[in-house]
Simulated assay, not measured.
Amino acid sequence: MRLGSKTADEFFGALAEKSDKISKLFQKRIESLTEPIKTKVMLGDTSVIDQTTFDPSKTGEFYEWILKTMKDWKSDGVSRTAEEDLRRVFVKLEKRIGNYLLFWHMSLQYHVLLYYKPDSKVPKIQKELADLLDGTKTKEKELADLTDSIIRERLEAMGHKDIDEQKLFEILFNEDGFREQIGQEVSSKTDFDFKAKERRKVELFNELDSLLVETYQTTSVLIDENRLVTGEEGCVCTFDLDLLKKNTRVAIFEPRRVPERTKQEILDSLDEIIKTLST
Results as ranks from 00 to 15, higher is better:
residue 120 S to N: 12
residue 125 I to W: 06
residue 154 R to L: 14
residue 105 H to A: 03
residue 152 R to D: 15
residue 143 L to T: 07
residue 123 P to S: 05
residue 135 G to W: 08
residue 111 H to A: 14
residue 51 Q to G: 05
residue 126 Q to P: 01
residue 106 M to W: 11
residue 86 L to A: 10
residue 99 N to D: 14
residue 95 K to D: 03
residue 123 P to H: 03
residue 54 F to V: 06
residue 89 V to L: 05
residue 127 K to Y: 11
residue 142 E to F: 04
residue 53 T to G: 00
residue 122 V to T: 08
residue 121 K to M: 13
residue 138 T to L: 12
residue 53 T to I: 03
residue 104 W to N: 05
residue 133 L to E: 15
residue 146 L to C: 07
residue 65 W to A: 14
residue 108 L to V: 14
residue 57 S to W: 04
residue 72 D to C: 01
residue 121 K to L: 14
residue 93 L to N: 01
residue 74 K to S: 15
residue 98 G to E: 06
residue 95 K to E: 00
residue 155 L to P: 03
residue 59 T to W: 09
residue 60 G to F: 07
residue 68 K to D: 13
residue 75 S to W: 00
residue 118 P to N: 02
residue 54 F to D: 09
residue 101 L to M: 11
residue 72 D to T: 07
residue 138 T to G: 03
residue 153 E to L: 14
residue 154 R to C: 02
residue 56 P to Q: 07
residue 108 L to S: 12
residue 55 D to A: 06
residue 72 D to Y: 04
residue 100 Y to E: 09
residue 139 K to A: 11
residue 149 S to C: 07
residue 90 F to L: 05
residue 118 P to A: 01
residue 150 I to N: 01
residue 108 L to C: 08
residue 123 P to I: 04
residue 140 E to R: 12
residue 92 K to M: 08
residue 81 T to G: 10
residue 108 L to I: 13
residue 132 L to D: 04
residue 128 E to M: 09
residue 73 W to I: 00
residue 121 K to W: 08
residue 98 G to K: 03
residue 105 H to K: 05
residue 66 I to G: 00
residue 132 L to K: 03
residue 106 M to Q: 14
residue 146 L to Y: 09
residue 127 K to V: 10
residue 63 Y to M: 05
residue 113 L to V: 15
residue 132 L to N: 01
residue 146 L to M: 15
residue 88 R to M: 08
residue 94 E to V: 01
residue 89 V to C: 05
residue 79 S to M: 13
residue 60 G to W: 06
residue 124 K to I: 11
residue 81 T to P: 01
residue 52 T to L: 13
residue 148 D to F: 11
residue 135 G to V: 09
residue 80 R to K: 13
residue 81 T to R: 11
residue 101 L to N: 09
residue 72 D to L: 01
residue 141 K to R: 10
residue 145 D to C: 04
residue 51 Q to D: 07
residue 116 Y to F: 15
residue 59 T to G: 04
residue 95 K to C: 00
residue 119 D to G: 02
residue 150 I to C: 01
residue 70 M to V: 02
residue 51 Q to I: 07
residue 56 P to L: 06
residue 91 V to Q: 02
residue 64 E to N: 08
residue 61 E to C: 02
residue 84 E to H: 12
residue 149 S to Y: 13
residue 139 K to R: 13
residue 59 T to K: 08
residue 92 K to R: 11
residue 69 T to A: 08
residue 76 D to G: 06
residue 61 E to R: 06
residue 84 E to S: 11
residue 98 G to M: 06
